[in-house]
Design a protein around this nucleic acid. Structure first.
Lengths: 209, 209
DNA sequence: GTCTATAAGACGATAGAC
DNA sequence: GTCTATCGTCTTATAGAC
């Protein structure tokens, strides 16, 4: 890990709100790649191009920053689901709930680290502060699905597919896609349609380790 | 995090192999709860009741220890699958591949942290050393399924179910099971059968944070 | 085979200037 | 609103004794 403390060149003053939003976005990207403990506040500061103490100042602590990142991820996700359900159907498009919401879930790859940050949070159930928030977040997704036409069985299957997608993203399977035949087959089985193209286009983090 | 460095009382001498095995087991349990970066070599040392420098001495580095833990988890998992496929069917038991192997997957909860350690590894795809190993590990599971009667579609569905199970375990959903009605419903949907009892019996880590 | 002691570095957070 | 400087702590790894 780099030991270079951020000493960013003075930036244009932004409103506190704008900075917070910018830093949370940067945090999603770094937390997604390196996890909660593996991410330093300086990593986030560099990604957001502000100084490390300022990140801590704005959020109070790294823990709070992570909680804010989770919240941002969930809010964006549920908002994307809303939009997907409201939008009129394209001609010939599969109208199943799973397809519409699933598509929007994959489109969220445009927000760097969103899926992986959530997955990291979901693995921290034993953490006294993060654990309860992560459980609540997962429950909110479940509730959303149940209130929007999913039976428990369909919600269950949808979430399973989503967790698998998160794994494929976290593994960066697309990177080895071409060399390992097992991975090529697995990748195809997971993305039978044009979704693979979307995944390949997903923004990459400039090597964070 | 505790700052107490382990200074264990002198232990009975074991063979290097025995100690390694013991430490890897302890490592699975701690890595599973706190992740790769979040786990200190001292955490593992305390869990294994040896000194911190000795853990490093035996494995060379924390990174190597994590790789050993992943390897142990995969080996145990595939061995459990083998056993599940070889065993004669109980009377009236569902003979589907998914059921037999899935059951053995849940039984692996007896090995503390096994599922979560793998999930953590699967989220570290961007790591230069761990990433390639994690991808290879996932590919080995895929290959195993494909060579034991699973079509790509069935393998895909099985893995999705497994990743969801890992999430539920990592979240420690069972802990809130009784208070949050959303979680109770979700929990039931994920474990329609007696599996829930198994999950509840799953060994807990004595609060690691 | 296993420990104690400790060096060297990295990290989160605070103080305080501008 | 944002930075520089810095403290104290935690952490990995090494040295070396038993």
């Amino acid at each position: 890990m780099s030991s270079v403390t951020t000493t960013a060149t003075p930036k244009a003053r932004l409103s506190s709100e704008e900075r917070r939003a910018q830093i949370v976005l940067a945090a999603l990207s770094v937390f997604g790649a390196k996890g909660y403990v593996g991410t330093t506040t300086d990593d986030v500061a560099r990604a957001a191009e502000v100084s490390q103490p300022y990140v801590v100042r704005l959020f109070g602590s790294k823990e709070n920053l992570f909680l804010a990142a989770i919240e941002e991820a969930l809010a964006r996700m549920l908002a994307a689901f809303d939009t997907a359900l409201e939008a009129p159907l394209d001609a010939g498009e599969d109208e199943r709930l799973e397809h519409r919401i699933g598509r929007s879930y994959i489109d969220l790859l445009q927000v760097r680290g969103l899926h992986q940050t959530l997955s990291h949070a979901f693995l921290l159930g034993a953490h006294p502060v993060i654990g309860p928030r992560a459980r609540d977040g997962y429950a909110r997704v479940w509730q959303y699905l149940r209130e929007h036409g999913f039976t428990p069985e369909r919600a269950h299957a949808f979430l399973a597919e989503g967790m698998m997608l998160n794994t494929v993203i976290g593994l960066r399977l697309a990177d080895d896609n071409d060399t390992d035949p097992r991975i090529a087959e697995l990748f195809t089985a997971c993305f039978p349609t044009e979704k693979a193209a979307v995944l390949r286009l997903a923004p990459r983090v400039d090597e964070p380790w």
